[in-house]
Nucleic acid binder design. Structure first.
Lengths: 196, 196
DNA sequence: TCCTTTTTCGACTATTGGTCGGTTTTTAAG
DNA sequence: CTTAAAAACCGACCAATAGTCGAAAAAGGA
């Protein structure tokens, strides 16, 4: 009765590895079952479809990211650093599986989008807490926190994810982050150091 | 020698209609050739692949959007209105083919992304001109125009595309647009009227 | 042991994007 | 008009792929 659970975890791990390294589209169910050494029927005993597998794999990833974010939440660092720390941790599995050259960016839009979508929803509340902390401390000053946090995530994603950003992109990002949260000019300048 | 060109345009039109109404993924090459009344070989005489068809279809759409944007560029309306006019025209084929309920949003990520990507590149220069015009007029005041314009497009897309936005989303969007371009508070308030 | 439930198997199906050799139609030159 | 090359077209065929299904093996009690 628990052998099944182990099997499922095993399949999830294999699928995770293959999805991340070769992309969701470029991984066939046959690939997965070959790697796992099982038959087609067994795979579909555990998953309703290939997409459901992706959904569960993403769930795993999200959980990990969220936990990392919550970790930062209680860390003894200044609020602006917390913000940036959480936001920059949103890049899906950067150190995890940077196998090969271009694997997470080009055609893997489906997975990428699904991750981003669910990540946003997960991280908004966490990030909102940090912003509220900053407001209490007087570092930030703004209303509509959740909406602003969402926008922060969006512009961060677009600026840094899968794309060559210039110094000017960074400058605008810093400027807008400060204005988004109502921080004093210069508050977020330290971002420049972190990136490069 | 021009019969071929007509055929190709016809196929492009059919593909466009089907991609938009049923989604790229949910449209098979067989669907297209059946609708067109031609054989498989003929289709592949005109297109290297299904994806190339999508690419060309998107090209058509982009051209239309870009022309509409350029139209607004020379229209006799205040600069802020121009900005909003162009930005809100970016939603791909809203009035064109709103067939069925959820057709452009759910799983059509691939097409959606490709459109967005190429649209951004096309519209940035046009929108930048408008912003420069606004700067000359004294309505706006900012540097790094292209980067800011890009960000404007991004936040606009995220706020209004495929998602339920609240009054607070709009408030934040207006606020950030003004700050992004260095406009006086209130300059962009008219957006509220346009939307609703 | 015997019956039930869980797990596994792999042959089979349907759909899909794409290929290929050959046939018909157009075009234009002689 | 004849004819040969070029353009356009055809549809059978192929390979890959997600997903199905009935049955067989394992595992678990009673």
């Amino acid at each position: 009765m628990k052998k099944g659970e182990r099997r499922k975890q095993e399949l999830l791990q294999i699928a995770y590895r293959m999805f991340v390294s070769r992309g969701y589209e470029n991984t066939s169910v046959d690939d997965i079952i070959e790697e796992a050494g099982i038959a087609k029927g067994t795979y579909y005993y555990y998953f309703r479809s290939k997409e459901q597998t992706l959904e569960e794999v993403i769930g795993m990833m999200i959980d990990k990211e969220a936990e990392a974010a919550r970790q930062i939440l209680t860390a003894p660092v200044p609020v602006p650093q917390k913000i940036v720390g959480i936001v920059t941790s949103l890049r899906p599995a950067p150190e995890e599986q940077p196998i090969e050259g271009a694997l997470m960016q080009p055609e893997n839009i489906i997975m990428h989008n699904k991750i981003r979508q669910r990540l946003v929803e997960t991280v908004i509340p966490i990030l909102s807490e940090v912003v509220e902390e900053g407001i209490r401390e007087g570092v930030f000053s703004c209303d509509n926190i959740r909406e602003r946090v969402r926008m922060l995530i969006v512009i961060s994603n677009d600026t840094f994810d899968e794309r060559n950003y210039t110094d000017r992109d960074i400058a605008v990002f810093i400027d807008m982050t400060e204005k988004l949260l109502g921080a004093e000019p210069g508050t977020m300048d330290f971002i420049r150091e972190l990136i490069r």
